[in-house]
Simulated scan of single mutants.
Amino acid sequence: MAYVVTEPCFDCKYTDCVVVCPADCFYEGERMLFIHPDECLDCDACRPECPVDAIFYEDDVPEPWREFIALNREMAPLCPSIVDRKPPLAGPTRP
């Protein structure tokens, strides 16, 4: 099991979660971040740092966003690793 980045990250990409990840398992897609499920330590450090509540433990991903489990698994290996804070996209705003 692993944590999963879901729909609220789309066009957002806050990187608060990235800088607290001890496993460096985040990957940067063009419009959202992804977590590599084979690298995730299930430590829960990232989830509370996400200002748009986009990160869920795999078993807790809401039903409408379940496809993001496979999307993270598929996209993380194709995207560059991200370990540093970057400016977010202009999409959803921080609550």
Score class of each variant (00 low, 15 high):
Met1Phe: 12
Ala2Lys: 03
Tyr3Asp: 04
Val4Leu: 01
Thr6His: 01
Glu7Ala: 12
Pro8His: 13
Phe10Leu: 10
Lys13Ser: 10
Cys17Leu: 05
Val18Asp: 00
Val19Asp: 04
Val20Arg: 01
Cys21Asn: 02
Pro22Met: 11
Ala23Leu: 01
Cys25Asp: 13
Glu28Ile: 10
Glu30Lys: 15
Met32His: 01
Leu33His: 07
Phe34Ile: 07
Phe34Leu: 08
Ile35Cys: 00
Ile35Trp: 08
His36Met: 13
His36Gln: 14
Pro37Cys: 09
Asp38Arg: 13
Asp38Pro: 05
Cys43Lys: 03
Ala45Lys: 10
Ala45Trp: 05
Cys46Tyr: 01
Arg47His: 03
Pro48Phe: 06
Pro48Glu: 02
Glu49Asp: 13
Pro51Phe: 12
Val52Lys: 10
Ile55Ser: 00
Phe56Thr: 07
Phe56Glu: 02
Phe56Ala: 04
Glu58Gly: 02
Asp60Val: 14
Asp60Ala: 15
Val61Gly: 03
Pro64His: 08
Pro64Thr: 08
Pro64Ile: 05
Trp65Leu: 04
Arg66Trp: 05
Phe68Met: 09
Ile69Leu: 11
Ala70Phe: 06
Ala70Ile: 10
Ala70Ser: 06
Leu71Tyr: 03
Leu71Ala: 09
Arg73Val: 09
Glu74Ile: 11
Ala76Asn: 01
Leu78Val: 13
Cys79Ser: 06
Ser81Gly: 07
Ser81Gln: 12
Val83Ile: 13
Val83Gln: 03
Asp84Ile: 14
Arg85Leu: 05
Pro87Asn: 12
Gly91Ser: 02
Pro92Trp: 12
Arg94Pro: 05
Pro95Phe: 11
